[in-house]
């Protein structure tokens, strides 16, 4: 592999902060969820790259990425269930329409 490790890390950092940006500017709940998926994906790249380039003796990063993918799936399913429940109530998934509890 002749691409330096820093390139991978910068790529994942960019992806992570694009996710953060999306989480800040968007108000649609499903889009928020997608932004979080971007962030989690960036983290997985980090783990895999560190494992492959720097510490290839044990597969700690590899397994962390594996478990993180499984957990992300579980989290998404619960989030989607809640979003659908909200939608049944108010027929909208814009977070601003939901905000009824302002002080």
């Amino acid at each position: 592999m002749d691409v330096p490790v820093h390139f991978f890390l910068m790529l994942s950092a960019a992806m992570f902060f694009i996710g953060v940006f999306g989480f800040i500017i968007r108000r649609n709940m499903i889009t928020l969820l997608m932004a979080v998926e971007l962030m989690l994906n960036a983290v997985n790249i980090n783990f895999v790259v560190f494992n492959r380039f720097l510490y290839p003796d044990y597969f700690e990063g590899f397994f962390f990425a594996l478990f993180a993918i499984a957990i992300a799936a579980a989290e998404t399913s619960v989030a989607i269930a809640i979003i659908i429940n909200v939608y049944r109530k108010i027929r909208s998934i814009e977070a601003d329409d939901v905000a009824e509890m302002k002080h």
Binding site: F16, G19, F23, M29, L32, L33, V36, M39, L40, A42, V43, N46, F47, F50, Y55, E60, G61, F64, A68, E75, V78, A79, I82, I83, N85, V86, K89, V98, A99, E100, M101
Partner: peptide, 26 residues
């Protein structure tokens, strides 16, 4: 329902930040 939604979204984004930290620790 709103409370559940707020909780899951903020917990998802916070664990993503936490994970990024863990990956750098690794």
């Amino acid at each position: 329902a709103e409370s559940g939604m707020k909780y899951i979204l903020s917990s998802a984004v916070s664990s993503a930040i936490l994970l990024y930290g863990i990956s750098l620790i690794y």
